[in-house]
Simulated assay, not measured.
Amino acid sequence: MATIKDVAKLAGVSTATVSRVINGKGEAAPETIEKIQKIVEELNYKPSSVAKSLSKRESNLIALLIPNLDNPFFSELVRTIEIAANKKGYQIYLCNSEDNREKVEYYLEAMADNYVMGAIINSLHVKEDDLERLEANGISTITIDRAQFSHAYSALAVDHIHGGYLATKHLIEVGGAKKIAFLSGPQDESSSQDRYQGYLRAVGEMDAEHIVKLYGAFDIQSGYETSYAYLANHPNIDGIVCSNDAMAYGVIRACADLGINIPQDIKVIGYDNTVNGKYSVPRLSTVSQFQPKLGDLIINELERVEKKNCKPKKYEVEPELVVRETTQKEKEIC
């Protein structure tokens, strides 16, 4: 029995294009439409009754595209969104791109093939053209956090400049840090750049000195290796602002191995408020950027646009400070 992939292969087009032509959605060149229709007839291809019903947006499947599962923030984000989706009777189709453009393209095609109702996108490698293609296929979209570009569709963005400012201001005001380092994620990561801007603003406003900007890869290993290499030769700093919790956990371990006491010798603050921060030694002060209730907001926005045919909305989230042991002043330690 012929499949939609057979038709696409013979026509030299994507399965998404075949789907649009068969369902009369979107635009294609007249010669492409004619070619696809001819192949469909020759192969006697007939979409299944299930596929037909799904193409009418009766699917209960929602695609969730994330950059990776190594960072605990994303695994917790998946769980939050899945709980919200399940409450509404939806299932999550998880797409782990591993921050790879080729994998992103594969999953974008797969979303159309699986007739998902909507797509939640968190990726630096998704372009506005990709969103337009999904929307043309009848798939409502909402971008969250990392996809911080201007587009015509639903979006939820975190004010990371404010988050970086909150973290740094707390480190200086409450922690008493004066000579501070910033541990960034990759240089091209926009949210990390925003956190750095907030950090610079706080340092500039207050009686503190920006010593160095270090780079990691948003994981524990890079946080450990980068901070260990620097602190082993530059013990003069008394505060580190980390772009995420994972790297902060690496910093905590590096300080332990170097005999540097937290928070007596150095104060450390993370970003994300992942669950492990409650149990690290010492417990990690951090910034919370994504509350559980936002999972409901994301699912509700997809439903609002898809089922009610409403105009997409933009949402901005204000991060919140979470104070624990890694930023306490020495006099507060019992």
Results as ranks from 00 to 15, higher is better:
residue 118 G to V: 10
residue 118 G to S: 03
residue 119 A to T: 09
residue 119 A to C: 09
residue 119 A to G: 11
residue 119 A to Y: 06
residue 119 A to S: 14
residue 120 I to V: 15
residue 120 I to H: 11
residue 122 N to H: 03
residue 122 N to T: 11
residue 122 N to Q: 04
residue 122 N to D: 09
residue 123 S to Y: 03
residue 123 S to F: 06
residue 127 K to Q: 11
residue 128 E to D: 12
residue 128 E to Y: 04
residue 128 E to Q: 14
residue 129 D to P: 00
residue 130 D to H: 13
residue 131 L to D: 05
residue 131 L to S: 08
residue 132 E to D: 13
residue 132 E to I: 10
residue 134 L to A: 08
residue 134 L to G: 08
residue 134 L to M: 12
residue 135 E to F: 11
residue 136 A to S: 15
residue 136 A to L: 08
residue 137 N to F: 02
residue 138 G to K: 11
residue 138 G to F: 02
residue 139 I to Y: 06
residue 139 I to W: 02
residue 140 S to E: 12
residue 141 T to I: 12
residue 141 T to P: 04
residue 143 T to A: 09
residue 144 I to C: 06
residue 144 I to G: 10
residue 145 D to W: 02
residue 145 D to P: 02
residue 146 R to Y: 07
residue 146 R to P: 00
residue 146 R to M: 07
residue 147 A to N: 13
residue 147 A to H: 10
residue 147 A to R: 05
residue 150 S to L: 12
residue 150 S to C: 00
residue 151 H to A: 03
residue 151 H to K: 11
residue 151 H to W: 03
residue 152 A to D: 14
residue 152 A to C: 03
residue 153 Y to P: 08
residue 155 A to R: 13
residue 155 A to S: 15
residue 158 V to Q: 03
residue 158 V to F: 04
residue 159 D to S: 05
residue 161 I to C: 05
residue 162 H to G: 00
residue 164 G to N: 09
residue 165 Y to W: 05
residue 166 L to M: 12
residue 166 L to Q: 05
residue 166 L to A: 06
residue 167 A to E: 12
residue 167 A to G: 08
residue 169 K to A: 13
residue 171 L to H: 03
residue 172 I to P: 00
residue 173 E to F: 01
residue 173 E to K: 12
residue 173 E to G: 03
residue 174 V to T: 12
residue 175 G to K: 04
residue 176 G to H: 10
residue 177 A to S: 15
residue 177 A to Y: 05
residue 178 K to W: 05
residue 179 K to S: 10
residue 179 K to D: 11
residue 180 I to L: 01
residue 180 I to Y: 01
residue 181 A to P: 02
residue 181 A to Q: 01
residue 182 F to G: 01
residue 185 G to D: 10
residue 186 P to M: 07
residue 187 Q to P: 09
residue 187 Q to C: 00
residue 188 D to W: 02
residue 189 E to S: 07
residue 190 S to A: 15
residue 191 S to C: 11
residue 192 S to Y: 00
residue 193 Q to K: 15
residue 193 Q to M: 11
residue 193 Q to G: 13
residue 194 D to H: 12
residue 195 R to Y: 08
residue 196 Y to V: 01
residue 196 Y to H: 14
residue 196 Y to T: 01
residue 196 Y to Q: 11
residue 199 Y to T: 04
residue 201 R to Q: 15
residue 202 A to G: 07
residue 203 V to L: 13
residue 204 G to M: 09
residue 204 G to C: 07
residue 205 E to V: 04
residue 206 M to N: 14
residue 207 D to E: 15
residue 209 E to S: 09
residue 209 E to H: 09
residue 209 E to N: 03
residue 209 E to Y: 04
residue 210 H to L: 08
residue 210 H to R: 00
residue 211 I to P: 01
residue 211 I to M: 15
residue 211 I to E: 12
residue 211 I to T: 09
